[in-house]
Design a binder for these strands. Structure first.
Length: 487
DNA sequence: TAATATT
């Protein structure tokens, strides 16, 4: 798993003899010169059984917490450590996971014991390297929590399609020092007509707004320039939910606001949808109906779900979701005539350093790693599902009030899809779609059990009536066993 | 005209 990382990371330090304490961890005096190939025995955080001084690192008072972005979702802390250890002793390294689904978010927080190590890592890595499977370079910069947050970041709308990062920068430079300036682009590189501009301070950003907002209409733009503070994370979430809501056509904004569980769910959906779309798995153009299905199926990205999706090529063809196990890689949606390698290994060795990229940045190949992962998960699941069907006949039951009945499931949904659908509401003990023995087809209903009644209620509240394709889910408490036979 | 992610 980590071997490809090793070969591509240059160890610039000389290798002095290492000393280890009883727990096998390096002593502090060795960490800065330790090669990246140290045995990966370190636990997730600095916590460990060994309490000797060498195992309880201290961080400097002025240490910087770094945010690390563009991390492949298959890399965990133990895989990342070697990459960052070369710049100094790590105080804490945490991959950021979704609080509801546990999904790897593709980023991490990293604190070195020494401030200097953080600065070294930032200058050596930020925008300098690309991790395997990523199509953009790694981000290593102080976390938002370290300093000013979003109060210095502007959203710039109504740009022309032709304006580059540089053009925008020139326009905004007179108001202050610009930290970052990025025109948003689609997968094909076409400008989305908007940009983000980050100043070093709030006042500069405010000045730019005052002077530039509405001040002119750029060539190719349909309206005058828009300059405003970028959405906060909270606002973004709301915006995304509203988008999903309008696409689904069933939730009013009020409802969206009033159901925290539903918020969590749509959040998860949207995150996953972005991931799946990025993998060129799905048509970027979706009908309302197909979008719903995509969002359901988008929960795939955990690598757990088995469902292959055939993307629609036109705007009116709903995608089909097949429940049939796929024994080998089917031809995924081609991008620019590109066909992905059938061997997921082959891209690993050379992708790391930008200078010797095996594939161009933004190439379709680079975008396909998540797809490979999805397929890998698919095959894994196929095996598991077979076992489940054979061995598990009676799904686990939660306590009274914790079990829900779901009807009008899409024909194609199996246990895993249903599980994913209800994960956001709590700890799922079991999820079982009932299957016709003769045909092996879903009976379109199933049961999900949570470990507590609130989760069950939240699930019912949010998902009863949820529209999928032409059907609406019926979600209610499972009747107690003795109520099943009323006479 | 809204994003690769910020415990």
């Amino acid at each position: 798993m980590t071997s490809f990382l090793r070969v591509n990371i240059t160890n610039t330090s000389n290798s002095s003899p290492q000393t280890f304490c009883s727990s096998g961890r390096k002593s502090p005096e060795d960490v800065d010169s330790a090669p990246a190939l140290t045995p990966l025995s370190l636990p997730r955080t600095r916590q460990s059984a060994c309490r000797s001084p060498c195992c309880v690192p201290m961080k400097e008072a002025d240490a910087i917490k770094l945010f690390v972005g563009q991390i492949p979702r298959n890399l965990e802390e133990k895989d990342l450590k070697p990459i960052f250890e070369q710049f100094g002793k790590i105080y804490e390294l945490t991959v950021i996971k979704d609080k509801y689904t546990g999904m790897h978010k593709g980023c991490a927080f990293l604190t070195y014991c020494a401030r200097e190590s953080a600065l070294k890592a930032q200058s050596a890595l930020h925008e300098q390297k690309t991790l395997p499977g990523m199509n953009r370079p790694i981000q290593v910069k102080p976390a938002d929590s370290e300093g000013r947050g979003e109060d210095r970041k502007l959203f710039v709308g109504m740009l022309g399609k032709q304006q580059s990062d540089e053009d925008v920068k020139r326009l905004f430079e007179p108001f202050g020092t610009i930290d970052e300036c990025t025109v948003l682009r689609g997968p094909d590189g076409t400008s989305k007509g908007c940009a983000f501009v980050k100043y070093q301070g709030h006042a500069e950003a405010q000045a730019a707004i005052s002077t530039l907002h509405g001040s002119r209409t750029l060539p190719g733009a349909s309206s005058s320039l828009v300059v405003k503070f970028a959405d906060t994370e909270k606002e973004r979430g709301l915006r995304r939910m509203q988008q999903v809501a309008s696409q689904l056509g069933i939730f009013s904004p009020t409802m969206t606001l009033n159901f925290p569980a539903y918020n969590a769910y749509t959040q998860a959906l949207v995150q996953q949808q972005a991931l799946v779309a990025q993998s060129a798995y799905l048509s970027p153009v979706a009908t309302v109906a197909s979008l719903q299905m995509q969002q359901m199926a988008a929960l795939n990205a955990n690598g757990i779900i088995a469902t292959p999706i055939t993307a629609s090529s036109g705007t009116n063809t709903p995608p089909t979701i097949s429940a049939t196990p796929v024994p080998s890689l089917p031809p995924p949606l081609g991008v620019n005539g590109y066909s992905p390698p059938t061997n997921g290994q082959q891209a690993s060795e050379t992708l790391y350093t930008n200078g010797v990229h095996a594939y161009q940045a933004q190439s379709p190949a680079a975008a396909l790693d998540p797809l490979q992962q999805a397929y890998a998960g698919m095959q894994h699941y196929t095996v598991a599902d077979t076992n489940v069907c054979v061995c598990v006949c009676v799904p686990a039951l939660g306590p009274e009030g914790c079990n829900i009945f779901i009807y009008h499931l899409p024909q194609e949904f199996s246990d895993s899809e249903m599980l994913q659908m209800f994960l956001p509401f709590g700890n799922v003990i079991s999820a079982k779609v009932f299957v016709d023995r003769a045909t092996n087809q879903s009976k379109c209903f199933g049961f999900v059990s949570f470990d507590n009644p609130s989760s069950a209620q939240a699930a019912i509240q949010a998902m009863n009536g949820f529209q999928i394709g032409m059907k609406r889910l019926k979600v209610q408490l499972k009747r107690p066993k003795d109520a099943n036979r009323p006479y």
